[in-house]
């Protein structure tokens, strides 16, 4: 599905090149759910933006379904089947939830059809469908609408950037089911989730750990997860793991 080779990304910081992604290579096969985790500022969102085409790598290549998409625009990648749920969703004045879901699906969905995506993320659909995606929505509402929109894309590869952030426990429970269902029921589709949550890590087929722009660990859940958990938070443990790697 997705093959990333020797990917690097640098930004200009005070006149000097700052490498945010450092020579990362990874592969996501068809029909799998992968989770990327790691400390804050490790480069997870940046990697997701490189996959979606929002940022251009300074080196390396991205292949999607056998095609080199490294130089394709965001639009062209979206059309080929890459969807991306933002860590911080965008607000729009005057664009309604229904409009956004219709744009995402590429179809003139009926309100009832659009509602089904909202219901999946635990929003009482009728109350939200006509609301504007503007500043009047709470953070958690906006986040769930973002996820619903991306579900409506029915993409081959969907990247969710911290879908759990700002979401209440009940909706979070729903969300886990949605991800599981996506993986189990939809053949050949792949999901990449960026997350700090143990519950999400525990449904991954494979876990990838990023720190300081480097891929420091990748492996099957059974193998990686026990090293990550066991203390209070996954992030904390991540740091533990990375120290372990350093010592190797």
């Amino acid at each position: 599905m997705l093959e990333i080779k020797n990917l690097s990304f640098a930004v200009d910081a005070d006149g000097k090149d700052k490498e945010i992604i450092k020579n990362i290579s990874l592969e996501i096969p068809d029909g799998k759910l992968y989770v990327i985790t790691g400390p804050n500022g490790g480069g997870k969102s940046t990697l997701a933006k490189l996959i979606a085409g929002i940022e251009q790598p300074s080196e390396g290549t991205i292949n999607f379904c056998g095609e080199d998409v490294t130089f394709l625009s965001v639009t062209e990648r979206a059309k080929r089947g890459i969807a991306f749920a933002f860590q911080q969703p965008v607000r729009f004045k005057g664009i309604r939830v229904l409009d956004l879901i219709r744009l995402a699906s590429g179809k003139n969905l009926t309100p009832a059809q659009a509602c089904s995506y909202l219901s999946q993320v635990g929003l009482c659909a009728r109350e939200y469908i006509d609301r504007e995606v503007n500043a009047s929505l709470s953070g958690g509402e906006l986040k769930r609408i973002e996820i619903a929109t991306v579900l409506a894309r029915n993409a081959l590869l969907t990247v969710f950037d911290e879908p759990e952030a700002g979401i209440d426990l009940w909706s979070f429970h729903n969300l886990i089911d949605v991800f599981k269902k996506q993986r189990d029921e939809i053949k050949n589709r792949s999901i990449l989730i960026i997350s700090h949550q143990e519950r999400i890590l525990s449904i991954a087929d494979e876990i990838i750990v990023l720190r300081d722009g480097e891929l420091i660990r990748q492996g099957e859940r059974e193998e990686v997860l026990p090293d990550l958990i066991g203390t209070s938070s996954a992030v904390k443990e991540c740091r533990g793991v990375t120290q372990g790697v350093d010592q190797c």
């Binding site: 965001v74 639009t75 991306f84 965008v90 004045k93 664009i95 744009l103 995402a104």
Partner: peptide, 29 residues
């Protein structure tokens, strides 16, 4: 128009021009 608004709509498969049109139509609604 905020760049991130255009980018978001492009990730939904719209071209840049289509994204601008949608944003303006919404804004003037």
């Amino acid at each position: 128009i905020a760049g991130e608004q255009i980018t978001k709509l492009m990730t939904l498969g719209l071209t840049e021009a289509e994204a601008e049109e949608q944003i303006i139509n919404g804004f003037l609604r």
